[in-house]
Design a protein around this nucleic acid. Sequence first.
DNA 1: CCCTCCTGAGTAATCGATTACTCAATTGAA
DNA 2: TTCAATTGAGTAATCGATTACTCAGGAGGG
Lengths: 338, 338
Amino acid sequence: MATIRDVATEAGLSTATVSRVMNNNGSVDVALVARVNEAIDRLGYRANPLGRALRRKRTPIWGFLASDIEAPFFASLLHGLEGKALINGKLLMLCNTGEDLERERQYIQTALDYQFGGLVIAAASMTATELDVLQDEMPVVLVDRVSAAYPDIDAVLVNNHLGAYSAVTHLLENGYRRIGLVAGPSDISTAHERRAGYCSALVDYGIDVTDDLVATGDFFAPSGHAAATALVTADQPADALFVANGQMAVGAYAAVRDLGLSIPDELGFATFDDDLWMTLVDPSITVVRQPAYEIGEAAAHILLRREDVKDPEPSEVVRHILEPELVVRASSCRGLGP
Amino acid sequence: MATIRDVATEAGLSTATVSRVMNNNGSVDVALVARVNEAIDRLGYRANPLGRALRRKRTPIWGFLASDIEAPFFASLLHGLEGKALINGKLLMLCNTGEDLERERQYIQTALDYQFGGLVIAAASMTATELDVLQDEMPVVLVDRVSAAYPDIDAVLVNNHLGAYSAVTHLLENGYRRIGLVAGPSDISTAHERRAGYCSALVDYGIDVTDDLVATGDFFAPSGHAAATALVTADQPADALFVANGQMAVGAYAAVRDLGLSIPDELGFATFDDDLWMTLVDPSITVVRQPAYEIGEAAAHILLRREDVKDPEPSEVVRHILEPELVVRASSCRGLGP
DNA sequence: CCCTCCTGAGTAATCGATTACTCAATTGAA
DNA sequence: TTCAATTGAGTAATCGATTACTCAGGAGGG
């Protein structure tokens, strides 16, 4: 591998000049720029990113910390992020935490060790102080989840309240009255907001919110199965289900099918998160679609901005909130089913 | 951030000694080992991986090059790989190529620039010489796909021939006779082998293979839709479909549903790759399940082994072949449907 | 014409670790 | 007791880039 020294020798110049040319830094005579570039081409030289990073105290790598990369939502978000990262010469380091706090801490330490150029976090179970320390070292963007504990960190979010509100309102308008909620862990902001949206919709429709129509899961499929089963087999069963995320919807849907209930006639069904299978099953499933890809892109955008401004005093905190979209399908429309 | 120099000062020793202690290298007096470790603890010192990598000419990062990280197969493979990587102190760099050759080359260049510790490739569209160059620099493992063009690179594969053979035989045993194949791109080894397995099964059953029962797609969903439509609307339509991968199965299944054909009575259906939705639809879908997670683990295992042996003469090439599993569900069993 | 300022380029320090080389002290053999 | 071998630790070179500092030479003002 050719080094910058080889290039300097080849061009008959010093390494300083070569470096200046490569980084478009300082002022170099046009003729010399050409000479350097020719030498670079001749040798097929590529700068060693490790040497560069050591000196600059910054790696052009972004970390993406997610709780479950196999979930379509995160996979899609990742996709959006990767596209923008690549265009801007960044690499993406995948950090799958599986909701494991220890692993999360480990990855954050890694981000610090390697002096990452930025970090996108979708698994914010850490404390405010930890995040503050982190943010002193590199740009950080929270996506999907956030907490009131750290209001001074950029975030890209979805209007979860509205999403849940519109889905539940839609169910109400289609005649369902005892709408059960398969909720997520209350300490995760998204779950909390979706629950709030569910409650608002009921209240606005003049219906009392009762605890026995809410069952809490953990955002993974098995818990969705258990929660749905509980809600539809209760003494006073739900006549519709709203599920707080796509993974739990898999379990919930299987539960309903196992119990032999027919959707949408006997039970209305809607969920957060769109996924391919939801159009393949019969009836197809009404969903609140999140713009996951766009969230990834927006996060990338923020990182790039933060990188540019070396502003010592932090500019205004960015809170980018995207709108979810209610996609009405057959599972929530009585009379449209088979 | 504390550096190794700070630790040396704190312990009243030289950086060389500190380094030796950290790497368990050379021989250091027990008392001094303790002193160094205490100093490290006191300062909360963590070695800078960039400095280390620069000197060692090796980064503890593995790259994972896949064509489509959103496909459940790769997501699961990634998961298995990540687990083993993390345990062994490696980081995983995600390289999503989307079957784009330019992007693939770009990522390989990156792996070389950063002097990755290993590379797992599931998108081998490159030439033999490119791979050979790459392999001189770091351990490389091919997963899922391989080509006769480079027989001297380690690989973890699935017995695609057997998988297809058993699925098609199963369809034959259930009375289907005109089995259509939704095939993948013939230049991808997996697609080729699955097609061969399909043919073998027919031949062994005494049935002629005819080209009009084979439609070729590109391993993505839309092409599955088109291919399936063609096969079941032909003059002499297929009475069963075997789909060569899970993504195309999504499209194929939707096509069949759109055409109003009933599975399994009017049409048998089976596919490579298992996925959640395949148990959620009615009837559930018969699949050839690949041990994706285990492939990831096996690939990690090979990288670790190659890293240990600094053997100049390459030890035997590893060809790890895992067995797929036929999971029989309702879509392929006439008379078991609703 | 001389002095100052500016431009363009080189020299060498630096980032943080590893390790070849060196050397003093200790061990063991003769 | 003496000399060679071994052990344990330090000094300094090195990995490959960036950049503070330095300096020569030319432009422009007085």
